[in-house]
């Protein structure tokens, strides 16, 4: 069962945010870099849903873009079904590209407003030369029905649909090249709460039906709880904890994960004491030394300010925290 489909090893991405060369020379500034993602490792097994959670600026979307090849990594590598992705070009990349797809956050920006829905969905089919002629039209109609729309909708333009319907169209497009792996970058965060559940259920049904593997990016823990088999928690571009889906909610190990879980609104009104998320994510241009979470951490110790914490195994997965290392040593 646990056959790895996607392996991410030591993945890192640095952005050059320096001023233009002339300004740097005149104002005597050095080059500036922003480290969006540093040293991230994870493996996604075939058929599972792996979720990445974190606040804004934690590097979730950057990882998503690197996985689908929109952005080249500055370090590390991405292995898809045994093939290293970065640097691969030509026919083998084309064959790889057919096997993964992406669903975007904003369904109002992810569909070309000048194209008919049918053309939008058929684009990957044409690109990979999967079908031709009337077979394309039939396949598009089939896909529209799969996602809960009607085959006649292919003639319409995106502006004739609501946000939830547009996201269904985006899903149909993602499915049209018959991919095995889909990266979902906050697919429901732009939708009404009532529509979110429908889209999530559709995605789960499709997963069961087609055996899809998802990399699911979200900042919404309740959505992640509904979807994920395994969860990775990102903080400032680093993976601070990884655990089995349900276990993470039962027993979080890293103090940041606990802080995030505490912040989830308590609809049951159980009256449990909640610790609010304090502070803000630091500036990634000038991250704090040592463990980047230490300025906000309730368990902060001296060694947190100097050394990057090692990744250790927990009962539910793995985590990177000096306090946990210390507890394990004792």
């Amino acid at each position: 069962m646990a056959e790895p489909l996607l392996q991410v090893q030591g993945l890192g991405r640095r952005f050059d945010i320096s001023r233009p060369w002339l300004n740097r020379v005149l104002e005597r500034q050095d080059r500036q870099f922003l480290t969006a993602v540093a040293d991230v490792d994870f493996t996604i097994n075939r058929g599972e849903t792996y979720a990445l959670v974190g606040e804004s600026g934690s590097g979730k979307s950057t990882i998503a873009k690197m996985v689908v090849g929109l952005l080249p990594p500055t370090s590390g590598r991405i292995v898809f079904d045994g093939q290293v992705m970065a640097g691969t070009e030509g026919a083998s990349m084309r064959a790889l590209r057919r096997r993964f797809q992406m669903i975007f956050q904003d369904p109002f920006a992810s569909l070309n407003p000048r194209w008919r829905v049918g053309e939008i969905i058929a684009e990957p089919i044409h690109r990979f030369g999967l079908l031709r002629g009337s077979a394309v039209t039939n396949r598009v109609g089939e896909l529209l029905e799969t996602v809960g729309l009607s085959a006649q909708d292919a003639e319409k333009y995106p502006h004739e649909f609501s946000g939830g319907q547009r996201q269904r169209i985006a899903i149909a497009r993602a499915l049209s090249s018959k991919p095995e792996f889909i990266v979902c970058d906050e697919p429901t965060s732009a939708l009404d709460v009532s529509v979110q559940a429908q889209i999530l259920n559709l995605m789960r049904d499709l997963q069961d039906e087609l055996g899809l593997t998802y990399l699911f990016i979200s900042h919404d823990l309740s959505v992640v709880r509904h979807m994920a088999n395994r969860i990775g928690v990102l903080y400032l571009g680093r993976l601070v904890e990884e655990a089995e889906g349900k276990a993470l909610f039962r027993a979080a190990h890293h103090p940041y994960t606990r802080m995030l879980l505490d912040a989830v609104p308590d609809l049951a009104l159980s009256g449990r004491r909640r610790q609010p998320v304090e502070g803000e994510i630091p500036n990634p241009i000038d991250p704090p030394p040592g463990c980047s979470f230490h300025p906000r951490c309730p368990l902060v110790m001296d060694r947190c300010r100097t050394g990057t914490p090692p990744v250790i195994a927990t009962q539910t997965g793995r985590a990177a925290c000096h306090a946990l290392t210390l507890a394990a040593d004792v």
Partner: peptide, 25 residues
């Protein structure tokens, strides 16, 4: 915009992206 990224994910040639996606808009 994300519709351009969607085309890039499947590896559509840049000239085609500019002509078919960006130009009409």
């Amino acid at each position: 915009k994300e519709y351009v990224q969607a085309a890039r994910v499947i590896g559509v040639h840049p000239v085609r992206i500019v002509a078919r996606h960006i130009l009409p808009n």
